[in-house]
Amino acid sequence: MIGNNGAGKSTLLNTIAGTLPVDAGDLTLAGHRVTRKPVAYRSRWLSRVFQDPKMGTAGELSVAENLTLAAQHTSSMSLKHYRRHGQTAAYQELLRPLNMGLEQRLTTQVKYLSGGQRQALSLLMATLSHPDLLLLDEHTAALDPQTSQKVMDLTQTIVEQNQLTTMMITHKMSDALKYGNRLVMVQDGQIKLDVRGEEKQNLRQSELLTLFAE
């Protein structure tokens, strides 16, 4: 999803995620009406990666504890011990493909990680429960170009591996064209362009730019 600043991209994302109440209309997630449900309830079907790497993880908690929050997200009120047998090995297995050395830093507090590491962890946490919908809110915008590319590649791998329905907001025209199989352009709160499949593959950056200017 692309669009100018103030076009309504984030508003749409926030209403789906539940941080913004809807004025009218209905919201259905995987067959469940969630129009008036809180964020925590919707988390059964959707996950979200924020733009700010600090937003998606709890800095005071360790890497392992953050992963636990995501892995056991349906039992947040449980009075059972959260540390489980074999958890460490399982988490290390999950973190290894990220290639960031996080598997050796399970007990490190997340606030000591770099922005890229935190964002990669957020992404992993968001996809751990195989959500029906993954929301990405310009999740590479706060990273340096190299890390941004790495996180984007990682996103592509995870999304394809798990066949996740994903909705990504981006300001990078090239990313919008390169990734995904549908492109939506928002302007003044309305969908201006909605292309998918082959039509999207054939779309050129210059054509998009002219649409933007209109």
């Binding site: 995620a17 941080t19 809180p38 964020v39 925590a40 988390s43 059964r44 996950s47 979200r48 924020f50 600090k54 937003m55 998606g56 993880t57 709890a58 800095g59 005071e60 908690l61 504890e65 636990t68 929050l69 995501a70 056991q72 997200h73 349906t74 039992s75 947040s76 009120m77 449980s78 009075l79 059972k80 011990h81 959260y82 540390r83 946490m125």
Partner: peptide, 28 residues
């Protein structure tokens, strides 16, 4: 604070937006 509820409490105090996104009813 060794239970999942305790972890939820700590997470809520630390980052409530992230906690809610991970299924924690932060008000509770």
């Amino acid at each position: 604070f060794k239970t999942r509820l305790g972890l939820s409490l700590m997470a809520t105090g630390n980052n409530s937006a992230m906690s809610a996104a991970n299924g924690i009813y932060t008000d509770r």
